[in-house]
Computed example of a mutant assay.
Amino acid sequence: MVTHVAPAGWPRQVRPPDAPDWETTAHAWLLDLCPPEYRTYPALRRHVVVLARFALRHVEACQASVHAGLSECRADLRHVADPDVADAAVETWLAEDARLSAVRREVGLVEEALRGRRFVARL
């Protein structure tokens, strides 16, 4: 009995490593994470492990942008928005930071699997 194992944090849109067509689902999911222009680059269309690296860097850049936005949010909005609006903006930045952290983990796991790592079930 063959069991395909995906670790905690694995994206639900991607089949577990070594499952039929798992790399196809990984490729489609990674492309969806990236800017639309990435679809036009032949190297990213042909080499899923290269796409995974680009996707990882893209997500990390988004995280850096969120961190900058969060650190500057109150000062940037001080003269143009009420304090409750600035609070809502901070909460939005925090929610986006949490979302991106989860996506970063997912992309990292997919990249590891594309590079040959396999995961074992834990009891």
Score class of each variant (00 low, 15 high):
Arg39Gln: 13
Tyr41Asn: 07
Glu96Ile: 03
Leu33Thr: 00
Phe119Thr: 00
Val80Tyr: 13
Ser101Trp: 10
Leu44Pro: 00
Tyr41Ile: 12
Leu70Gln: 01
Glu23Leu: 05
Glu72Arg: 11
Val80Thr: 15
Pro16Gly: 02
Val90Glu: 12
Cys62Thr: 05
His47Thr: 04
Glu60Asp: 08
Gly108Leu: 03
Phe119Glu: 01
Val5Trp: 02
Met1Thr: 13
Pro42Ala: 08
Gln13Cys: 08
Arg115Phe: 12
Ala113Ile: 00
Pro35Tyr: 06
Ala52Glu: 00
Ala89Asn: 05
Phe119Asn: 02
Gly116Ser: 09
Val59Tyr: 00
His58Cys: 09
Val48Asp: 00
Glu72Asp: 14
Val80Ser: 15
Asp97Gly: 05
Val85Glu: 14
Ala98Leu: 15
Asp97Ser: 12
His4Ser: 10
Gln13Ser: 15
Ala28Asp: 15
Ala55Tyr: 01
Thr92Ser: 04
Arg45Leu: 05
Asp76Arg: 14
His79Val: 11
Glu91Gln: 09
Val110Gly: 01
Arg99Tyr: 11
Asp21Lys: 12
His58Tyr: 09
Ala55Asp: 03
Val48Met: 07
Pro17Gly: 04
Arg105Pro: 00
Ala95Tyr: 14
Val90Trp: 02
Leu77Ala: 14
Ala88Phe: 05
Ala68Arg: 14
Ser101Thr: 15
Asp87Thr: 06
Ala26Asn: 06
Pro16Ala: 10
Val14His: 04
Met1Asp: 12
His79Ile: 13
Glu23Tyr: 02
Leu100Met: 06
Ala43Val: 13
Val107Trp: 00
Trp29Cys: 00
Gly108Glu: 03
Pro16Tyr: 00
Leu123Ile: 09
Val66Asn: 00
Thr24Tyr: 05
Phe54Lys: 04
Pro7Phe: 03
Gly116Met: 13
Val14Met: 11
Glu111Val: 06
Arg15Trp: 09
Leu123Ser: 11
Met1Gln: 10
Arg12Tyr: 10
Val107Ala: 03
Arg99Ala: 12
Asp84Met: 10
Phe54Ile: 10
Cys73Glu: 01
Val49Trp: 02
His79Glu: 15
Glu106Lys: 02
Pro16Ser: 08
Val80Trp: 10
Ala6Lys: 07
Met1Ser: 12
Gly69Phe: 03
Ala61Met: 13
Asp18Tyr: 08
Ala113Met: 04
Leu114Glu: 01
Leu109Phe: 06
Val50Asn: 08
Asp87Tyr: 09
Gln63Asn: 02
Val85Lys: 08
Arg118Lys: 09
Arg53Thr: 14
Leu114Val: 02
Ala55Trp: 01
Glu112Trp: 03
Glu96Asp: 07
Ala121Asn: 08
Leu51Ser: 07
Ala43Thr: 04
Pro83Cys: 09
Glu72Ala: 12
Arg117Cys: 06
Ser71Arg: 15
Gly69Glu: 01
Trp29His: 09
Leu70Asp: 10
Gly9Asn: 11
Ala43Pro: 02
Thr92His: 00
Glu37Tyr: 10
Cys73Phe: 06
Ala26Asp: 01
Val49Met: 03
Leu51Gly: 06
Leu109Trp: 02
Glu37Ser: 13
Val59Ile: 15
Leu114Ile: 08
Leu100Gly: 04
Pro36Thr: 07
Ala102Arg: 14
Asp82Val: 08
Ala8Ser: 10
Glu72Ser: 11
Asp21Arg: 13
Leu77Trp: 10
Ala113Asn: 00
Leu51Cys: 08
